[in-house]
Each structure stands twice: as structure tokens, then as C-alpha cells.
Design a protein around this nucleic acid. Sequence first.
DNA 1: CCGATCTTTGCAACCGGTTGCAAAAAGATT
DNA 2: AATCTTTTTGCAACCGGTTGCAAAGATCGG
Lengths: 333, 333
Amino acid sequence: MVVTLKDVAERAGVSRSAVSRTYTDGASVSDKTRKKVEKASRELGYSPSLIARSLATNRTKLIGLVANNFQNPIFLEVFDLYTRALQERGLRPLLVNLTNETNPENSVQMLRQYNVDGVIVATSTLQPRFSHAFKNANMPVVHAFGRFEQGSPVHVVGIDNVGCGRMAADTLIRHGYKKIAFLGGPQMATSTQDRASGFLTQLKASDVDVADVVYATAYNYDAGKEAMLELLGNRQVDAIFCGDDLICMGAMDAARSNGLSIPDDIGFLGFNDMNMSAWSAYNLSTIRQPTPDIILSSIELIVSLVSDPTRAMETRIFPCSVVERGTLKPLKP
Amino acid sequence: MVVTLKDVAERAGVSRSAVSRTYTDGASVSDKTRKKVEKASRELGYSPSLIARSLATNRTKLIGLVANNFQNPIFLEVFDLYTRALQERGLRPLLVNLTNETNPENSVQMLRQYNVDGVIVATSTLQPRFSHAFKNANMPVVHAFGRFEQGSPVHVVGIDNVGCGRMAADTLIRHGYKKIAFLGGPQMATSTQDRASGFLTQLKASDVDVADVVYATAYNYDAGKEAMLELLGNRQVDAIFCGDDLICMGAMDAARSNGLSIPDDIGFLGFNDMNMSAWSAYNLSTIRQPTPDIILSSIELIVSLVSDPTRAMETRIFPCSVVERGTLKPLKP
DNA sequence: CCGATCTTTGCAACCGGTTGCAAAAAGATT
DNA sequence: AATCTTTTTGCAACCGGTTGCAAAGATCGG
């Protein structure tokens, strides 16, 4: 049924090795032989099986792509970039959906069964024990969007969430807000912890009172809405820093449903700058995370990690920036 | 480095076959042997390589998941469901991003190289020659969200887009609209063609004039916005059927930016009922497509197709329904 | 206790490739 | 033309599993 290397060899009148060498670069084949092989291949419609090759080379060109948040549209942007960038490098993503998965061992086993060359963990909410589990199973691992920790056993590519929290505080203060609240993602997400920490300490350092601190139960719209309703009990708030754009949208919709107008009654600052944040229904002022840079860099890192697993541990931090749109009252001149 | 079957066999003091049989169900192994093997496996941390196994069994448990729209959040819902449902069946998705890809041969080759057991093409905008190309390469193929065509060479799971178009027309008429327009997705997408056809013929059949017909260049927000601006030149419109919720949101935002209020000045009917459509910023009345049913059914179909490739050609059509929210003026009593 | 029957086991070939090695062929040098 | 290099080639073993087959072991009835 399926055309194999042997078929091509017979048709071309050469040895199997010759055919194999035609398709591995750097191998020694004469022009004459190569031509014969390519002709036979074309006639038969042959393409080498990466699966079989991987048995001998120990390289599947498969990269495990581990994620656990399929509710946040930002991840569609993330998948788009990953799949295309990996494709361009001749690699393929093997998607692992960790929603509802609590045991890292299951995922480790899955990925080991397919002999992936490396693993990219792309999430800011996963407990570290997951990425560590992959590491312990001897797979090259990069944690994208992860937390930088001194002595972390896995390579990290991401942002300085604490610094971004400070940046958020400065931004709100600069816009003249006085009664500022924090509406974060899930309290156990490292990204939320860090953003909160930077944000709150900076407010304190600037002698601005923290009006309220609330955590959404997930990085999604409904959770943002719900947390906002909780927060709305507190009439003292004039601006909110949300730990994520999607949460922020839920919060904004909750505020509007309660008759508040944005930014006159209340200001909002989001986080991520996903495509939707520019939509005129939200027109969200937000802190931009350089997603494409993080993704490209994490791919580059995993690739070099695959060829040199002993590579020195590394953390790559990209700078964020404030994107001013319409959910904060104008700066005083 | 990595633990193989041979290591386990040696440790357990049995033959390689015995170990292999322990992990293939239906094989004949005594309880005593199985115990020994499992003990050794545990101690060594062994899990069988699906890659190596696939060489002998010709089953990789890999399903190619082909998509070309990474801009529409509905696809995040789709990916979520696919990855989880496939995972539950011991299968894994190999994601193929067809954005910007014009040559089916590239994709065919990719999937063949990984020896996927089957292919699910999940899109309503791909030209049929893509799914046909997979079919011609002798892979089991299911086209999810595809068009039903008499004599189609691939199995199709989806909806009756023509019927849905009619349903949309009836809905707008029932709500008392008189000057109705169609704002579709890309004109070459089969889903758009069919929805337009059903919609427009039904309007005609009901003696309602078609105020305008416009096509967005893509199934995304910006394209919807742009198409709406084009359509807004025409002051005669009192309701619009959009071929997709996301397009509809772009259109709504364009309308609001032009000072129109919804649904008083203009009514909107979307298509899909994605999660975001229920957001209070849009609160979109729409035609619901039973995405989970389509996905589950397409998986079921590809699975049985893998075990019996000669299975009779089949089309599975699921019913859609109208979801009434707030973008159409209330029904007259 | 023996032979018939059923279950379990190991051997060896195979799945579709790669690769070290030595022999063969081609090219260079004198 | 003979010798030395360099390039190309095929052989055979290997990657990590599965499986048909025949031999070995267990079970059972008489």
C-alpha cells in the first residue's frame, strides 16, 4: 500500500542505503545516484517516514505544546504563532490540553510515548510541578509565560510580572486615580501573585491607598464579571487594574450593567493587549505583553536545547509597555 | 538513557515478547509473568514507545487536525473540544495550520510523514481540493463543518447551511423587519455561499426585498467592521444577517461608532453562538450551531473509518436553532 | 499416571528507516 | 600505467517494538 524506501531502491536499481542517503543531508551520494533515486521517488510518490527515521535518529521533530487555558482568546493567538513558527522550522506541535488534569505523570507518559524532542509549557497558571515533571523525565523543557525563579530547574521565557505590576500602579497614579483596586486572576497563578505583589507594593510606596483586592477564579470573562460584582459593593473605587484583558472585559461589562460609565465613573487597566482589546466596544487601555517575542524566543531556545541538553540554565525576560486607549481618563497636561 | 522493552525483559527475567504482550491487550500472558513485568517496569520507569509500536502495527494514534482560521475565537472552543475528546480516546491531535498555505501537497506530505491514522479537516472555508487531496493520499478523512455535496468523496459532518439561511430569513421577518441585508463571510467560503443562498431565496419567497448583500474578506472582526462601513452607505437597512458572530461583532461596533443604536435603529442576527456572543457588550441574537455534536460525531466517524476504511460514504447533518437575545427588536405579540 | 487439550512462552522475522565499516569506483599524481 | 587519495556504494546491524509459529508447560479426564 504505502511506498517504502525498499520500493524506491528496487525501482532505482540501487541499495536501500543509497535511497536513505539521498534524503539525509550531509550524506555522501553521487549526482548520478541521487538523480536515479529522485526519479524513482517521484514516479512512486515516496516520502520518507519520519516515524521510522526517528527510531534510528532519536529525533521525532515533535514538540509537546502544553497548555491549560482554552477559554482565553489570547491562546488562539498563541497557538497560531506556535504552529506556524514550528512548521517553518520543520517541527510539529503535539498539543496537550491540561484542562482538568491534576496529575503530571499522565502528561509525562503521553509525551514520552511519542518521544517528543522537547516540551514547551505555555501557560502562566500551571503549577511548577508540571514543568518540573517533564524535566525530571529528562525532556528538554522551556516554560513560556512562566515565572522567573532563582534556581528554577527549567528554562523560562516570559516577562517581569512584578515589574509590570509596578508599571500598572504608576500608570494609574499618573492618570490621577486615588482609590485603586486590584482585580486579579486565580490567586494560585504565579502570574497573578507577581502582578499583585508589584502593583500593591508600588501603590504603597507612592502613598496611595489600596481600595480593594479581589481575585477571579479563572482567567476568563465570566470569572472577571463575577469578581467585579463582588468588588462593586465597594463604592470607594475609581480605578481597577485587572490581571488580564479578558477578565477586564468581564469586569467592564459588569460595571456598565451597574450603570457605571467608563472611564468617567471608573477607569480600567488591562493586561496582555490581545487583539480584542482594541475592539471599539472595549477600547481597552492595557499593558502589552510581547507575545510574539516570547513565542519565537521559546522556540529558538527549545531548538538549541534539543541539540545541546546541557546548555546553561537561562531566563529570558522581555519588556512590557503601556498601551493607552480609552478606559482611563485622559492624562492631566 | 531511555528505558526500552529489552531492559524490562532482562530485569524481569522474561523474553521481550512477554513484555510486549503485557502491554497489548488481548495477548496471552500468565498472571505471574504479567506481575513480574509490571514490577520491573515500575522500578525502571518504563512506558512503551508508541512510535516504535506504530512501525509494526501501522497505527500511530495520531489524528491530523487541519484548520485554517486562527483568528476566530470559536476555534479555540473547537480546539478545546477536539483535544480533550481525542485525548479521552487515547488519540492525539497533530495540528496543521493552513493559514497562508495554498498547496495541498505540502500538507499531505507532512501528514504522511507522520503516518497519521486519519485526518479531520475542521473548517468551513477551505477549498474542497484540500480534503480531496488527503483522500487521494489514501488517508481516512472527515470534513467537519463542511458542505454536504452529492457525490462528495469525503465524509462530511456539519449543518445544513442553506436551511440555516432560510431560518435566518424567517427569524428576521418574524421580528417584523422589512429592509434586510446580508453580510457574509468570504465569498468563496462554501458556508457563506450556502447561507446566502438559503437566506436570499427565502426572503424572495416571502416577498421581502433584499436591501443589500456584502461580503467580508475573512471570518474575523476587522473584516466585519470594514464590510459594515461599506454597507452603512445604504440608509435603507433595518436588519442584517451576518454569516458569523465575530463578523457580526465587528459590524455592530461599526454601526455603533456611526451613532446607530441596536436594536432600535438596526437589528443584528449572528451565526454560530460562540461563548462571546452572550457577553453583555453584544448580547447577540444568533443562530446556534451545535459545535460539540459536530466535533464528537466527527471523531466517532474518523475512529470507525480508521478501523474500516471501506465504510459507506456518509453525511451527518445536525440541526441548528435560533438563540434570541438582545440584538433584534422584540417580537410583536 | 498418561495422553489430550489448552495456555503460555521464546525464537526469529519483520515494520521503515539510519549508519559504521570495508570494499569498489573514480580521480589525482607521478 | 602504477600507485595513492578521495568519493561512493552496499552490507549488515541496529533503533524499539509486534507477532506467527512451534515448543514447553499447565490442566484435566479417565
